[in-house]
């Protein structure tokens, strides 16, 4: 299967290096695409304010400015106010960080962030992200295919789904304290073939920098043909399971947010149409594309399925 989005070289001058030592190492890995600690001098630079001119997604739409994508975040662990998240998440501790891959696998393992960045070379993917609320952005992510991580654990033949769990840390996440009626921690799920799809990545950076906390640092899922809420942030656990796992929004409002949550202009949300969207940074609206424009790559996954039933 051909993937249109080819990994591109990461522009070194946009690598933002964090103060913390381990992140320096990680940053160098990001920078060079090789093992860290090979003498690359960390350059401390202020993040670029605007994207590289001329950079677009494969449809020719420009990358959304960093100031927008890093200041407009649906992240209820911090706040329901999309603009308050960046401030509230500023000091969210992401060091140390461990991801556990477990469940129906032959080789369960735990991996620290540093090792993760070393073990899996980071590539750039410019993806559209379409929020279920009806807005969208174009983001240059750095990450690696989730398939590689899963392959390492060797899923058993019973494994049919992948369950993702986000961090539960109420002392650092005010939303987890404030919105008590939500089923924390945030969980998500994919069918195994969706999780293994080459477009599905785990992202550790964006715009050539490490992920800022408000965008899901240090590691998040990105599934570009599904509504944004599927792309779970701050992942700590990835579990292979036999049956369709419960997911956060599907538990909160089952009629509004399905398990599949594929971007689909023809299947409205119960309270609004999904036929159009606002691209942040533009005025007015534009039509929403089937599978968010990734139809060619992913439609086969849903052949014969009623997408109205399986919203």
């Amino acid at each position: 299967m051909a993937v249109r989005i080819s990994p591109r070289e990461i522009t070194p001058e946009h690598v933002y290096l964090n103060r913390r030592a381990f992140l320096k190492v990680a940053g160098s890995a990001l920078l060079t695409g090789t093992l860290a600690a090979c003498g690359v001098q960390p350059q401390t630079q202020t993040p670029a304010r605007t994207p590289v001119p001329g950079k677009t997604d494969e449809l020719g739409d420009p990358i959304t400015p960093y100031e927008i994508t890093s200041n407009y975040n649906n992240y209820y662990e911090f706040s329901t106010d999309k603009r308050a998240v960046a401030r509230l998440a500023k000091d969210f501790p992401t060091d140390p960080w461990t991801i556990e891959v477990t469940g129906l696998v032959k080789r369960p393992f735990k991996i620290g962030l540093e090792d993760l960045l070393r073990a899996f070379p980071q590539e750039e993917r410019i993806y559209r992200l379409r929020c279920v609320e009806g807005w969208s952005v174009v983001v240059p992510w750095q990450g690696f295919p989730l398939a590689k991580l899963l392959a390492r654990a060797e899923p058993t033949s019973e494994a049919r789904y992948v369950r993702f769990v986000s961090i539960y840390k109420p002392e650092a996440m005010p939303g987890q304290r404030k919105y008590r009626t939500f089923p924390w921690p945030y969980t998500e799920g994919l069918r195994l073939d969706e999780a293994m799809h080459p477009l599905t990545i785990l992202a550790t950076g964006m715009y050539g920098k490490l992920l800022p906390p408000q965008n899901g640092a240090p590691v998040r899922l990105v599934v570009p043909w599904k509504y944004g809420f599927k792309s779970i942030k701050a992942v700590v656990k990835i579990e292979l399971v036999a049956t369709q796992p419960k997911t956060f929004w599907n538990t909160v409002a089952p009629h509004e947010y399905g398990f599949y949550a594929n971007v689909n202009p023809n299947v409205p949300h119960p309270r609004w149409s999904q036929a159009t969207e606002r691209r942040l940074g533009e005025s007015g609206r534009r039509p929403t594309l089937m599978f968010n424009g990734y139809e060619e790559e992913v439609a086969y996954l849903y052949k014969g399925m009623d997408l109205r039933e399986n919203y």
């Binding site: 409205p268 609004w272 149409s273 999904q274 036929a275 606002r278 005025s283 007015g284 609206r285 039509p287």
Partner: peptide, 21 residues
């Protein structure tokens, strides 16, 4: 006028697909 730019076809879709809010 501003959000939908008087695109009645889009608006109509929006209105028809709704819960009645």
């Amino acid at each position: 006028g501003v959000d939908y730019g008087w695109r009645w076809d889009w608006l109509w879709q929006e209105i028809l697909s709704q819960k009645p809010y």
